[in-house]
């Protein structure tokens, strides 16, 4: 019997620690599929963040480094500069990349570091228990914005894909979502593209993935998917913000 659906080879055969309904697992799978399809597992090195994906190094069958909070792009820079023929990717959340690690991501992107960044934006701090993130939507309630995010006090949620797309060096920047089969297919193409850009063009690529956090949003998984569609996508539009020149 011909198998029609299998675990990607690059995805470790272990249970994850992620909450039920969390979409990190989908993103992990898409990355593993891309690595398998490009046949780069044996020369890929991942960098895990601090946040919910802190243990991501246990879930991929590739070498991994665990970075300090927000520093994954600097760690990835060090790996890539030491081993330029390897494929290096970071996996970061919105607290990691868009708050404590803004300097590192902006400058890695600005240098055009040939790395792939998978940026998972779920508009909240998951690991530490649902505090406000730089990406938390206006009015969104969290444990540190109990009356809803007040933009007069905290500013507006930060759109990293658009911000980084203003830089000259990055080759590929896109925003996708993983809240529906159609969006997941788009996300898969974007993530694979982000690895191809590194492998073929030796350029910086980032994919922002809108993701859910049912636990800290206080919603059942299915309603969380809908909440993402109705609240996040209007503020964080999907699409490609920067593509390699020849493809324009």
């Amino acid at each position: 019997m011909k198998p029609v659906f299998t675990r990607p080879r690059s995805l470790a055969d272990v249970s994850t620690h992620y909450c039920p309904g969390c979409t990190h697992g989908i993103v992990h799978r898409l990355i593993a599929e891309a690595i398998d399809e490009l046949d780069i597992a044996e020369r890929t090195i991942g960098v895990a963040p601090v946040g919910c994906a802190v243990l991501a190094y246990n879930y991929f069958n590739v070498d991994f480094q665990e970075a300090a909070h927000g520093r994954a792009p600097a760690v990835a820079t060090g790996i890539k500069r030491a081993l330029p023929d390897r494929v290096v990717f970071t996996y970061q959340g919105d607290g990691d990349l868009a708050s404590i690690g803004t300097a590192e991501i902006v400058h890695a992107a600005n240098r055009g570091e040939a790395i792939t960044v998978i940026y998972v934006n779920n508009a909240i701090y998951g690991m530490t228990g649902g505090q406000m993130a730089p990406t938390t939507l206006a009015g969104q309630k969290t444990t540190t914005s109990p009356f809803g995010r007040d933009v007069e006090v905290c500013g507006y949620p930060i759109r990293m894909a658009e911000l980084l797309a203003t830089l000259v060096a990055p080759r590929y920047i896109a925003r996708v979502a993983v809240n529906s089969p159609a969006h997941i297919q788009q996300a898969k193409r974007a993530i694979k593209r982000a690895f191809e850009v590194q492998v073929n063009d030796h350029g910086f690529a980032l994919v922002e993935v809108l993701s859910t956090c049912p636990t800290n949003w206080g919603l059942p998984p299915k309603k969380a998917l809908a909440w993402l569609e109705e609240n996040m996508i209007p503020y964080y539009p999907l699409g490609e913000f920067k593509v390699p020149k020849e493809a324009e």
Binding site: V47, Q65, A67, A68, R71, A74, V75, A76, T77, G78, I79, K80, R81, A82, E104
Partner: peptide
Amino acid sequence: NMVYGASG
């Protein structure tokens, strides 16, 4: 942190 990555 670049040192961390390169050393690793």
